[in-house]
């Protein structure tokens, strides 16, 4: 029972998309997490709600909203299409966007939890010792929040790997193009390809198990 080319394509797309998503969301997550954990500003509650929304909305709904926004006639999609001639929906890019939106709250949650636990008094002490706010962030806040940051990153990454609902809405289920692991399993079940389902389920389970184990290792030492 060799793994098929289509399955390899789905698995590698999932990993590629999750990594690309991480590259984009990690710096943004640090910024947003720091804002939510350490700053007070008008609209903070709104920003928090906006970031956390995909966590409570059914992924299908998040995906539908993205479809409306990113479609050729959507608010953002039309602009991109007219300026760059690129159609976002049903492309690999749309998979990246979908998994980013869905995984972002998990990433930010971990970062916020980590950073909130860093006493502001220690950050102030660093300031009195001559450190600029940026130096304080990289030498005090971030190192002291590292467990929350790593935990959020691993959870967010795993969520990206297995995202289904939003992806199928914005990106469709095009084998070799937008078909990720989760979508491949969905198709295999529908087509009754039991052996393929077992293999993909086994791979997913191993990946999920490893992610949770790594999170525990780094955050609950």
């Amino acid at each position: 029972m060799r793994i098929t080319a289509a399955e390899v394509a789905a698995l590698s797309l999932s990993i590629k998309v999750a990594l690309l998503s991480l590259v984009v969301t990690f710096p943004l997550g640090l910024l947003v997490g720091w804002l939510l954990a350490k700053r007070t500003f008008p609209g903070k509650a709104f920003l928090n709600t906006l970031v956390m929304l995909p966590l409570v909305l059914p992924p299908i709904v998040s995906g539908y909203l993205l479809l409306i926004l990113l479609g050729k006639h959507g608010f953002i999609g039309r602009f991109i299409y007219q300026t760059f001639g690129i159609e976002i929906v049903f492309s690999e890019l749309s998979v990246v966007i979908a998994v980013s939106v869905i995984s972002f709250p998990l990433l930010v949650r971990g970062i916020v939890t980590g950073m909130e636990a860093v006493p502001v008094e220690l950050e102030n002490a660093a300031r009195t010792l001559g450190a600029s706010p940026i130096k304080v962030f990289f030498t005090i806040t971030l190192p002291m929040a590292h467990r929350g940051v790593i935990g959020g990153t691993i959870l967010g990454f795993s969520k990206s790997l297995g995202e289904f609902g939003a992806t199928i809405m914005v990106a469709g289920n095009i084998p070799g193009k937008t078909q990720t692991m989760a979508l491949a399993i969905f198709s295999a079940v529908h087509l009754g390809e039991d052996v393929s389902v077992y293999r993909l389920v086994l791979i997913s389970t191993v990946v999920a198990f490893a992610a949770i184990w790594l999170t525990e290792r780094f955050t609950l030492r």
């Binding site: 002490a125 009195t128 450190a131 002291m144």
Partner: peptide, 28 residues
């Protein structure tokens, strides 16, 4: 505060827990 150059000793110490004593002292 970083431009004032006033050494501040806190009641609770507020040493950086993730740094050694030497690194704490080098910090400023």
């Amino acid at each position: 505060p970083e431009k004032r150059r006033f050494g501040y000793v806190f009641q609770e110490g507020y040493l950086f827990p993730h740094l050694t004593v030497a690194q704490n002292i080098r910090y400023g």
